[in-house]
């Protein structure tokens, strides 16, 4: 009897393990980072610290955005071994916009379109090894895009 019970227990444990990858994928989205209202909270949730300003990051964004609902942002990192680019808008209701993680074969480069609630700095933070680098670009928003 005991043997059988043990076996069933083990079977349940194994099937729980089989479900893990799906759970891990769902848990991947960094809820505290995306819910953060203050920049420092978002950085902490992403385990980003000791960020140094870098001239090797280029942010291309309009000086003035007519419509805050669609603001095109281009970030190019010339920092060797760029592993990720996180984009923040300091004056949005939640500050973290997106975090792009690159594997070998993809450049540290991204273009996307974002919503901006009001005039703000757009901040890009690059991870390379255990180091973090950042650059900023001010975008003046003439019409709120967060609705």
């Amino acid at each position: 009897m005991m043997q059988r019970r043990k076996f069933i227990k083990a079977l349940f444990a194994a099937s729980a393990l089989a479900l893990m990858p799906i759970k891990a994928f769902a848990a991947m989205w960094n809820t505290p980072a995306f819910q953060a209202i203050k920049l420092q909270e978002a950085l902490t949730a992403l385990q980003i610290s000791n960020v140094s300003l870098s001239n090797n990051i280029q942010i291309i964004a309009p000086d003035k955005a007519e419509n805050g609902a669609v603001v095109q942002i281009e970030v190019t990192s010339h920092i060797p071994n760029t592993e990720s680019i996180a984009i923040f808008v300091e004056n949005n209701p939640t500050v973290l916009i997106a975090n792009f993680m690159f594997s070998e074969g993809a450049d540290g480069f991204v273009v996307t379109r974002i919503k901006m609630a009001e005039t703000s700095d757009v901040l890009a933070v690059i991870k390379s090894g255990n180091r973090y680098f950042s650059a900023k670009k001010r975008v003046e928003v003439l019409e709120n895009g967060c609705g």
Partner: peptide, 19 residues
């Protein structure tokens, strides 16, 4: 190649370029 996490502030009908 790339894995990204997005919040609510990516514009409607998201656009992306990568290299």
């Amino acid at each position: 190649l790339i894995e990204a996490q997005w919040g609510t502030a990516i514009s409607k009908n998201p656009y992306l370029t990568f290299h």
